[in-house]
Amino acid sequence: MKRFIILWQHQLWQMFIAPSTYIAAFMFLAFMAMMYLFSLVDVSMSASDVSPLGKFLSVFWVPVLFMVPLLTMRSIAEERRMGTLATLMTTPVTAGQIVFAKFLACYFFYAILWLMTLFFPLITEFYMPNSIRTAGLMPYSQLLTGYGFVFISGAMYIAIGIFASSLTRTTLVAGMLSFGMLFFAIVGAGLISKFALPDSGFMVWLSKPVDYLQTFRHLEDFSNSLLDTRPFFLYISTACMLLAVTSLITEAKNA
């Protein structure tokens, strides 16, 4: 455990001094600030059942598509290209510890960036006093479940990014692979359900499992304060499986 904490601190420090982290942070916060502004404008222009927070979180997937690759693409690919992963493997640490430390470091930054978006309602309150109370900018239950969804699904997205990074030595290729896999993970099930699955016939049994994988349905449930354990299981188990596979790949490719 001590070695794992040392590794995690080291990964955090490496991320802290990496330019790609700041590019990801800037792009994410700029985009999300813009989205928050648009959702406020939208709510103020017309009456709507959806709160500004609900509108804001509905576009969570757009920044995920570029932020996660930027945060994760260097993690293993760069270290393998430089040969520093091999040097690290000559110390008494396991590939699993290395991969999990990298995952947690990336996840930490991912969570921090999302938590920073909580300042948006506070900034609004600063310029428009009482807006939080009168316009309902911070509905606590929705805040908890909406951000809960973002954090739980984020574990899987970060694991996808780390997995993509272990497949290649090239950072750019890792980023592109990560983008493709994330795109499929977020909108794939929805697209399959909409275009590929017929309403009847021998493939009709597939509609239920595909439905279970639909990210936007999970977001909708969470945003409506509906807590379902199945998405928890889906995201956490997929993240664990991907991290286990990444550990095996890291160990095998290092040999």
Binding site: I17, A18, M82, G83, T84, T87, T90
Partner: peptide, 11 residues
């Protein structure tokens, strides 16, 4: 162990 080419983190 000091491997061939001595890889080190640049940053």
């Amino acid at each position: 162990f000091m491997p061939e080419n001595n890889p080190l983190p640049e940053d």
